[in-house]
Design a protein around this nucleic acid. Structure first.
Length: 665
DNA sequence: GCCGAGCCTTTTTTT
DNA sequence: AAGGCTCGGC
């Protein structure tokens, strides 16, 4: 393959050519990052590096899938699939499936999702807490996660509730042969750090590493990389410190800011030519982000001068702001702009409500990212829980979920008894149920019920363990034999409930069928791994495929671009968010604003209000302090509220002011 | 074991 | 304003 360097600009070319030693590519928004990275891989292979020696890790599944497609296109499917490519978590999971025994786990460990973690923590808290204390499970969990990520101790278990909780939580997970998402990273790090043979073996194979979205990596992921990448540090990371917006869930910006101290001798390459936006948009973005301290200085530029200034509009209230946006969209649409090309990016989800109602009123088509996950559906969770227990019967959370689902007379009191027994004997609940010492505590009737349940599970388990078992029929067998549809029928309050649940079951069976039909079909375990690590949010992946104006949070907009963009609600307390002001993380809010601005290709409108309805109450709003920071050279300022008043006839104006007074008082 | 009234909270969300 | 959660009554 001869190489097409002429398609790249100079820094891009340099990034592609530098394949030995540590490299940090600072790729600003819209600077052709993905193209550069995939070309770099192609170039490496071109230079004689075997694809099987290349590791490419990303932060999200979406990025991993994109990368996989691009690499396949570039190298062909045969070479493409030799590259080790996936998310950090998927990589660690695969490593641990092979080596778990070295760190005291069975290789069929379960992976606990967020909701499973929450239910486990709730259960532990219920046991742990005295009447005066109270602790929200989600809050506790985020502290546990922080402690794991940063490797910090929470102190003495006897002194601190957090420490006691972490202790019990950790013990419990281990007893259940389960890991949470953090554990996947943590245990993989432990494995590599403490087992030289494994580390050497992995380092021998994966001699060239590449990391995308590096600004989103956390401390554990950095530790993993350091364990994984040996001298001469053939590691290339790509990211943009200015787009680091996930600090609140552990992303550590020092990874990118101090990259050279982790990998000495690193070459830093900046990509600053932007192919997405016009000069006014980039100039405004640059003027904002340069107010952040401790960033790596860079400045985006474009050859596209553009024809529209950035606009900054003041509206009377949030209703008027929404109307204004809709009116301008209709006007732009009349002039030939497509609704698909427009987007409204907001800070908080509740900002979308008033927009949606205005869109519906004016009959403007819109698309919105669905927040609900497919795997949050009860029917999907129920059947998946059966599959989980079949793969790892020691998975207590799944087992407790199905113990009385469908109702089979094994109520909470028996479940509690089994729990106590399992704690006392330090076994799983499944093992407790099988224990004759436990069964002796039960009534004749309950013994029978528990026995039946265990027999059924063992039967399913044996079926699932058969080689080359088809999963879709297996799931259907479970659904039929447990009488799940009858159970749902009794549970339903309306006929639509039943229909909805049937849809969920269909979707689950469809994904099982797809898995069955795959060329390199794996085991039940493989299917469960994929579903655990792929939080397939409904619609999320399709947001770019759907049509209409895109309504989306600034966070979710990262990586997307739209010709025409509105950023409403630029008020102190919303952006920067009130909580970030309190917590002193305004820099991250500034980056978030920067991400929002740099999504726009041709036209950008910023807006804020004098008043806004919040929690059912009218609030006075101050303009965002970030607005002062913007260089107004390319910004047109427009007081829409005042403009509205001028346009009114005297009578209307009197009405207007009267109604305004009513609203204020 | 289930339902509903009343109370409380309210940023972003991936693996 | 609205969704989630708890607690009390049946």
């Amino acid at each position: 393959m001869s190489f097409a360097f002429d398609q790249l600009n100079l820094p891009q070319r340099e990034a592609v050519k530098t394949i030995h030693g540590p490299v940090l590519i600072l790729a600003g928004a819209g600077t052709g990052k993905t193209r550069t990275v995939t070309m770099r891989i192609a170039h490496m292979v071109d230079e004689g590096i075997s694809p099987s020696n290349i590791l490419s890790v990303t932060f999200t599944n979406k990025a991993a899938n994109e990368m996989r497609e691009r690499v396949k296109d570039m190298l062909g499917p045969a070479k493409g699939k030799d590259i080790t490519l996936g998310t950090f978590h998927a990589f660690c999971m695969k490593l641990l499936r092979v080596h778990a025994e070295a760190i005291g786990y069975k290789t069929n460990f379960s992976i606990y999702s967020q909701s499973e973690q929450v239910s486990l923590v709730k259960k532990i808290l219920a046991r742990l807490m005295t009447k005066e204390e109270s602790l929200d499970a989600n809050v506790a969990l985020s502290r546990i996660s922080k402690a794991k990520n940063y490797g910090i101790s929470l102190g003495d278990a006897a002194q601190s509730l957090d420490a006691a909780l972490l202790q019990l939580y950790t013990d419990e997970l281990r007893a259940l042969n389960a890991m949470d998402f953090d554990d996947l990273l943590l245990k993989a790090v432990e494995l590599l750090e403490e087992h030289e043979d494994v580390r050497k073996q992995v380092q021998q194979k994966l001699r060239y590493a590449m990391v995308d979205e590096f600004q989103d990596t956390n401390t554990l992921q950095m530790r993993l990389l350091r364990a994984l990448v040996a001298k001469p540090y053939n590691i290339c990371v790509v990211g943009d410190d200015d787009q680091s917006i996930y600090g609140w869930r552990g992303a550590d910006i020092t990874n990118i800011n101090e990259f050279e101290s982790f990998f000495p001798g690193a070459k830093v390459i900046k990509l600053e030519e932007n192919y997405r936006s016009t000069t006014p948009i980039l100039h405004t973005a640059n003027s904002l982000i340069k107010n952040n301290v401790g960033r790596r200085p860079k400045s985006l530029w474009s050859q596209n001068a553009g024809s529209n200034p950035v606009r900054l509009v003041l509206a009377e209230d949030d209703k008027e702001e929404a109307e204004l946006i809709c009116d301008e969209m209709l006007e732009a649409n009349r002039k030939g702009d497509k609704f698909d090309d427009m987007a409204v990016l907001f800070r908080t989800n509740d900002q979308s409500r008033i927009l949606e109602s205005e869109f519906r009123k004016k009959k403007i088509p819109y698309r919105i990212v669905g927040a609900r996950s497919f795997f949050d559906r009860r029917e999907v969770k129920d059947i998946l829980a059966y599959l989980h227990v079949m793969a790892n019967p020691d998975d207590d959370v799944s087992l407790l979920r199905i113990l009385n689902t469908p109702t089979r007379g094994i109520g909470t009191s028996t479940a509690d008894l089994a729990r106590d027994h399992s704690i006392e004997k330090r076994t799983s609940i499944y093992a407790a149920l099988k224990d004759s010492a436990f069964q002796a505590k039960l009534s004749q009737r309950m013994q029978l019920l528990v026995g039946n349940f265990i027999d059924q599970i063992d039967l399913f388990k044996a079926h699932a363990a058969q080689p080359m078992v088809e999963l879709a029929p297996l799931a259907e067998k479970v659904i039929v034999e447990i009488g799940y549809r009858d159970y749902l029928g009794k549970l339903a309050k309306t006929p639509t409930d039943v229909e909805n649940w049937e849809i969920g079951l269909k979707m689950l069976k469809q994904s099982l069928t797809w898995f069955d039909e795959r060329d390199n079909k794996g085991s039940l375990q493989d299917f469960l791994d994929e579903t655990s690590l792929n939080d397939d949010r409904e619609e999320k992946d399709d947001i770019t495929k759907k049509t209409g104006v895109c309504l989306i949070t600034m966070h979710a907009s990262k990586g997307l671009e739209f010709p025409i963009v509105w950023l409403p609600g630029l008020e102190e307390g919303i952006l920067p968010h009130k909580r970030s002001i309190e917590e002193g993380t305004k820099d991250e809010e500034r980056r978030l604003f920067y991400v929002g601005i740099t999504r726009a290709m041709r036209r950008l409108t910023l807006s804020h209000c004098r008043y806004r309805m919040k929690w059912g109450q009218k609030q006075t709003c101050m303009p965002s302090s970030f607005l002062k920071e913007l260089d107004k050279k390319h910004v047109e300022i427009f007081d829409h509220a005042a403009h509205m008043k001028e346009e009114l006839s005297p009578e209307d104006a009197a009405d207007f002011f009267a109604s305004l007074r009513r609203q204020i008082s």
